[in-house]
């Protein structure tokens, strides 16, 4: 039996809009083996991002359990969850979500400010991460001075700089042109293949899903 990096068991999640309860996920079970590159696909409103948020520990399920990197995320308090995310999860967002007043270097350094690394060690980590994404020559550039593809690569460098156990990516190519999207997908594929990073990616894009080893479909809150 393979070692699972993510184990989702009987998870349900609903939101309240005024007095109306809107079910988003129902009795979801999902296991992601370590080192896997999983793509979650499905139409808008199917619950893909909600499931990703639950796995990443930025939201809590109504029922069920989620175990990631041998930690039962659902049992952690808010502050424990914050520490856990910093240690285990690397995030890549559709709209990059870089801090506009910080340079590429400073954006990538952000997660390391929460660690006990020295300034020199942080510097080494940041330069290595930016080197992996091919942006060593753009360290001092601000986000607005970079193209969309370059900004997403900075976001990927930020996601991997603390050497997380799991990378979660929410529509990482959703805001990019075809060429940039291909670059990003190639980079994610490389992170999975060369650096053995486990990746869970939400996407609409079939080309993106084709890069993954495993594709699961969500529809109306259920895995199909």
């Amino acid at each position: 039996m393979p070692n699972h990096i993510v184990a989702v068991n009987e998870v349900s999640k609903s939101y309240r809009r005024d007095s109306i309860k809107i079910p988003v996920l129902e009795n979801i079970n999902l296991a992601v083996p370590e080192g896997e590159f999983l793509a979650l696909m499905g139409p808008s409103g199917s619950g893909k991002t909600t499931l990703l948020n639950l796995i990443a520990g930025i939201d809590r399920p109504d029922t069920g359990t989620i175990v990631v990197a041998n930690d039962e995320v659902t049992k952690l308090s808010e502050s424990q969850m914050a520490d856990w995310r910093a240690r285990h999860i690397g995030f890549i967002f559709q709209f990059y979500n870089l801090i506009p007043v910080l340079t590429a270097y400073e954006n990538v350094e952000l997660p390391l400010l929460l660690t006990k690394l020295s300034k020199k060690e942080r510097d080494e980590h940041v330069k290595t991460a930016l080197g992996v994404v091919g942006l060593s020559d753009r360290m001092k550039h601000y986000p607005k001075q970079l193209s969309g593809g370059q900004q997403q690569r900075v976001a990927i460098a930020r996601a991997i700089v603390a050497d997380p156990t799991l990378i979660v990516a929410d529509e990482p190519t959703g805001d990019l042109d075809k060429v940039s999207a291909t670059e990003i997908l190639t980079l994610l594929e490389r992170l999975n293949r060369e650096f053995k990073k486990s990746i869970v990616m939400v996407t609409h894009d079939q080309r993106a899903a084709d890069k993954a080893h495993l594709v699961r479909h969500l529809d109306k809150g259920e895995l199909v």
């Binding site: 914050a82 520490d83 995030f91 929460l114």
Partner: peptide
């Protein structure tokens, strides 16, 4: 707000 959300996501308290 989105930036604060990102910071929280990264582990900022």
């Amino acid at each position: 707000m989105s930036e604060y959300a990102v910071l929280k996501t990264l582990g900022f308290r």
